[in-house]
Amino acid sequence: MTVTSTASTAPPSGTEPNGSRTRRPRISKRSVPYLLLAPALFFELLVHIVPMLGGLWMSFLRLNQFFLREWMSAPFTGLQNYRFALDFDGAAGVELFQSFAVTIAFAVITVGVSWVMGLAAALFLQRSFPGRTLLRGLFLVPYALPIYTSVMIWKFMLDRSDGMVNATLSDLGLGGERFWLLGNNAFLSLTVTAIWRLWPFAFLALMAGLQSIPTDIYDAAAVDGAGLWQQIRTITVPMLQPVSQVLILVLFLWTFNDFNVPYLLFNQAVPSSANLISIHIYQNSFLTWNFGLGSAMSTLLLLFLLVITAGYLMLTSRRSRNA
């Protein structure tokens, strides 16, 4: 495109008396997009790609406390770290697999519930009524709060002896003696906290999506006798598909990689029911100083997410083309 347009504009400018003046814009015009993209590309390489390649390289090294200081000279071990991480007969491999399963369950539940809650809230706030703006603002509060503050508050609330959750439960006569941060309950606590933090984002995105659906479609459907539920099912959800498609992908990637919520909620004592993969990797590299193994696990995570993302995009784009 650019080439043809420069070619068509070049001859007239070439007829101008000052030839050197005309040549300059021609060169720069062709390279302008690249030059303008160069800074972004440079920083993208610097901030993301180079460390990623570094991590990939580290995953092939035996990088422990003996070689940390001179990490350039750490011995190359080939696939040994990967073999160890994926050895499901050993304790470490089993743990990685469990952590992986926990993470998938956590991500699916968190994304699913956040999407449903976000859609419900967006639909309720679609029609104008007094106090609507206030409610909209209120719903966005969890998303606007700093993550540290909000998760710390959840931690206090979930405390067994003085926490609000147990106090409320015992006031209601439902027993208030439960540990929320230990054992299997920890998974529930983690999921609720993550949903509480994430659903406002789903709400915001879906609310924006709703604005683009023309109201006359609903009017026409109403005339044809479609009930509210039918309208949602046949008009709202399908027409929100492009928004939902991106939203679900982004939410999935965020929750799958979530480090802050479990780390803040459980500190270093993360129960195995809430041992998300990012925490698992952290513990395997920073607490045991085995950065080669940690990098190998990170690479496996990266590969998995790449496959999921590519598969998801292929599937959804084909579906939208068919529709």
């Binding site: 035996r62 160890f84 991480a85 470490a92 045991t288």
Partner: peptide, 15 residues
């Protein structure tokens, strides 16, 4: 026993 297994296998935690 589990802890010892983890510690022994170590995954390249030796020199």
């Amino acid at each position: 026993d589990q802890a010892q297994q983890k510690m022994r296998s170590g995954g390249g935690s030796t020199r």
